[in-house]
Design a protein around this nucleic acid. Sequence first.
DNA 1: GTCTATACAAAGATAGAC
DNA 2: GTCTATCTTTGTATAGAC
Lengths: 186, 186
Amino acid sequence: MLTREKIIVLTRDLVQERGANDFSYQDLADQLKIKKASIHYHFPHKNDLLLAVTKHYSNELKDFLNNLNQNDSVKTRKKLTKYLDMYLELSKSGDKLCLCGILASEIQGFPANLVREINIFFQIHETWLRKLFQEAQENGELEFSGSASGLAAIFFSTIQGALIISRTKKDPKYLKSVIKELLNWV
Amino acid sequence: MLTREKIIVLTRDLVQERGANDFSYQDLADQLKIKKASIHYHFPHKNDLLLAVTKHYSNELKDFLNNLNQNDSVKTRKKLTKYLDMYLELSKSGDKLCLCGILASEIQGFPANLVREINIFFQIHETWLRKLFQEAQENGELEFSGSASGLAAIFFSTIQGALIISRTKKDPKYLKSVIKELLNWV
DNA sequence: GTCTATACAAAGATAGAC
DNA sequence: GTCTATCTTTGTATAGAC
């Protein structure tokens, strides 16, 4: 793997664990066994690195969702379950949050382009969920009161919140039960 | 107000805006027009300060909830609305999150006693919500499928998540619509 | 209880050799 | 593209005078 890519992947992990304000180029250098100056060569400023990591994370998400959409015969509920499984997996790690969830909580002090990128990530989620709910409502696969976009916002907010609370409680079952409860509502 | 108290209140504000890893004793000293050393007199280590702030925040919450519980004649839905209004107010500030929500997202690296205090805060919320839902279900004021504790977890997670997302979008209406959607479900 | 002064480490960043 | 060396600023913290 290219050094540039290694830096991005490791940063992603560190941010998901500790946040953007609690990891340093020194941490990266130590773990990658290179020097700080080498990292500055690839990403002169920390915000450059955070921006690249966020874009990388969004691209991974797009791939994941495209993959889910690929197979049209898959039932809506099955797609939804696979989507939610992604977060259950994350929660099982015990020490990670959604990259953009944690970045969003530190957003004051970030430059505008990074804020924009985090919002794009949120938008990808909500758009995917909204379309899923919309189509499922139209073809009668799911039933719910309220709008598809409202339901999408609820699902996404709940997961982001539950991830944080679940980790704090050191109890992955918390997220699991919240997700189960959510699924009972559609 | 005593200096000690001033420090706590200002720290609370700064943490709600920027998080625990992005404010310093220097920031406090500048805004309070005292010297860093004076703050170290009251709170030798930063974690001492964060612990005091968290306890203070929990006490404010307890007062608020006790106040709500005071008047038994108030309808459940009204109590719930007042509870949720607290977060709508917070969201209107445009730059603050729930203190414990933001602390929880930075929890790696905090000492055990601080983690415990954050969990206590979460517990207060969930217990209050659970009891509210439980009693309302028993006396028929509210109807919902699933357990009262599950509903409490959903409400609390959703609010925490929506606060973060709402601020990132710079759109307090996001939280507002999520709350409206939640209320449609009970 | 607040101040001045200071210590010490770490963070973000750059210059220039290889 | 990576290194050594260095710079500057900031953060956390303590000692000791007032």
